[in-house]
């Protein structure tokens, strides 16, 4: 395949990956890695490197908007970034020693978990229970809603921190934002309002990905010829996605379609991992 055809295919594929990733909140990386490895036979290390670059572009782009609206809890994000960057560093370092077919299988498993997570009904609950550690760390805050600022308290700081170590390691190992794991840690463990947890997770993804990208960059995983169309495509797709989200609120059916697609991709990754084709 010539470079120009290859680049165009990736550009279009990445656009749709970014669009779907932003509409469902799963991120573009989960679609782009199967697309590159299964369809275009790209080595998984190159795919992970390119995906990581696109993750930084989209998360920084959308985080900029959320931070300005004051929804993001910057202190909480900063504190948890200790865990995610440390995890990401370890993940990126061990990625070199893990055989690629194990990475493919792990990718598939995380993908299915993320799909299930995206289907779960979100119940907005505001935790008022005080926690000593959260108070000391000044993690409790408020966020703007239609009826004015709502105050919330953060619970189980230690548990959330531990989960973030794991989320960071997965992000570094697989080259995805692992937003689903970050939201899981903040939603179910730390009891943070959904709107705050999604935006704060987004805020953290860029730094987490950068911590492992510096390792990948030096290992030669980030190829410019491949990363260029992936990053541009995913970013443009994510931008379109966020424009659509402003106009429509019900994306229930879309989540189902995406969950089915993702589960199919995940099983392909696992199957190819087991048969040693990746």
């Amino acid at each position: 395949m010539s470079v120009i055809v290859f680049t165009l295919i990736i550009l279009i594929g990445s656009y749709f990956a970014g669009l779907l990733g932003s509409l469902t909140g799963l991120g573009g990386g989960v679609v782009i890695i199967p697309l590159l490895t299964l369809l275009l036979k790209v080595d998984i290390h190159y795919a992970i490197g390119a995906s990581l670059v696109s993750v930084i572009a989209t998360s920084s782009g959308s985080a900029a908007a959320y931070v300005k609206e004051g929804i993001t809890n910057i202190r909480l994000g900063m504190f948890l970034e200790i865990a995610t960057t440390a995890g990401a560093m370890v993940g990126a370092l061990i990625a070199v020693y893990i055989p690629t077919h194990y990475i493919a299988i792990l990718f598939g498993v995380i993908l299915i978990l993320s799909a299930i997570m995206s289907l779960k009904k979100k119940v907005e609950s505001i935790n008022q229970e005080p926690s000593k550690l959260a108070e000391k760390l000044k993690l409790n805050s408020t966020y703007p809603t239609a009826d004015g600022a709502v105050a919330y308290n953060v619970k189980n700081v230690g548990g959330g921190f531990f989960m973030m170590l794991f989320a960071g390691a997965i992000s570094g190992l697989l080259g995805i934002g692992s937003g689903a794991l970050k939201v899981l840690a903040m939603d179910t463990i730390m009891r943070i309002p959904f709107k705050v947890s999604t935006t704060t997770s987004n805020f953290m993804i860029g730094v987490t990905a950068a911590a492992s990208a510096v390792v990948y960059l030096q290992r030669g995983y980030i190829d410019p010829g491949l990363s260029m169309p992936v990053a541009i495509g995913v970013l443009l797709g994510a931008l379109s996605g966020s424009k659509i989200l402003v106009h429509t609120s019900s994306s229930g059916w879309l989540r189902w379609v995406f969950a089915v697609v993702v589960t199919f991709l995940a099983s392909q990754m696992i199957y190819n991992g087991f048969t040693g084709k990746i």
Binding site: P224, G225, S227
Partner: peptide, 29 residues
């Protein structure tokens, strides 16, 4: 940064558009 990537991409495609793209084997950059 994305503007720089885009400019580089245009130059790269102009110079190497007809080359053969192969990423199936990992051999660094």
């Amino acid at each position: 940064s994305m503007s720089v990537v885009f400019i580089g991409g245009v130059v790269y495609l102009y110079r190497h558009g007809q080359s053969h793209a192969d990423y199936s084997k990992f051999n660094g950059v």
